[in-house]
Nucleic acid binder design. Structure first.
Lengths: 185, 185
DNA sequence: TGCTACATGTAACAAGTTACATGATTAT
DNA sequence: ATAATCATGTAACTTGTTACATGTAGCA
């Protein structure tokens, strides 16, 4: 259900056509809610049927025309109601945790390599986030209302990644220190 | 695809019937991969068709009979191959992050309450994890091979929750300190 | 009497993924 | 030439969720 809300939240910024929306779901919004453009087009159609967004066809010279979507008053109310309704923690579904759980069925070296791989990916992601932080939120104390929430969202992404990175480092250290007892084939 | 792997990983411990499998997916396994029993039954059927698990009907007195599933040699090889294949970071899809992103459309108090709600939920979850840690992994240095991976999986859950908790606390502090500039209706 | 636990499923629907399809413009 | 960008979609499939359906045993 929350893809609808993620789209509405993005359209609260300003109207977007499907193509541009999808680009936001690759970048900023996509860091905490990813969606393919097929999903976005499908959802936009549904949101329009429900009267939560409204589209306007805009013809362009030397480019395909676009349908630009904007949130209606009903859409904004719908979004507000959803935000006001308490929600549960996002459920976790993590391949790497499944791998770790069954780690005893492969040589330890295999798990160690995968941990190092993920450690590197999380480091890279954190670097990207820090870059954005420096560029857009250098002075978090003096941010206008809207940007303040964007800043906190970004901080959420950073803390999330830090959690995984800390774990990767600790798990690598642990498996390395206890490798004497490893029985590799 | 990874539900299949999560089931195989669980069945590597010992054979389970669908009902008991589902219980594991409520508790331990469910902390990093949840699945409803409808999903589990459906997937078990498919895994059996593919020859990755094998079931045995066991009649019981004064209880319904059960189908107990065990991993086949092909199933174990399949699981090993999957673990050896590097995977991407798990994609994030988090309602609370969407709410934060669009936080400016509701009074600040609304967001603060939701943050406190999530803070409490993460604290509770961490308490549960710490309890398991003390009960089952009091001496991580001297764990047998298999339990060692279970311990690291649990540590992953703890770090993950810590990441979110740290963020909740920081975001609450930030919004509280900067509430002077809030424009509540 | 009604609730929980045991045990397994079907059906319908919603959400997410992968592949296919079209067609113009602009940059290399 | 050909690749990338802009712009929108359909079709088929897999996953995940919700609701319905059935029946026994044991407990309060």
């Amino acid at each position: 259900m929350a893809l609808a809300h993620a789209i509405l939240a993005t359209l609260m910024d300003r109207p977007y056509c499907g193509y541009d929306l999808r680009k936001r779901f690759e970048g900023s919004v996509g860091f905490f809610w990813q969606a393919s453009f097929q999903q976005i087009y499908r959802e936009l159609k549904k949101l329009e049927e429900q009267g939560l967004v409204h589209s306007e066809a805009i013809a362009q010279e030397s480019r395909p025309g676009k349908n630009v979507f904007a949130v209606t008053a009903e859409g904004e109310a719908f979004l507000q109601t959803w935000i006001e309704t308490p929600c549960e923690m996002a459920p976790l579904r993590d391949d790497l945790q499944v791998k770790m759980f069954a780690g005893f069925v492969v040589p330890r070296e295999t798990i160690l390599m995968e941990l190092q791989h993920h450690q590197a990916m999380h480091q890279e992601r954190i670097a990207v986030y820090h870059q954005i932080e420096q560029n857009a939120f250098a002075n978090p104390e003096q941010l206008p209302e809207k940007d303040l929430f964007r800043y906190l969202t970004l901080r959420g992404g950073i803390q999330y990644e830090m959690g995984w990175l800390t774990w990767c480092e600790a798990a690598i250290a642990f498996l390395t220190q206890h490798s004497a007892s490893a029985i590799d084939p």
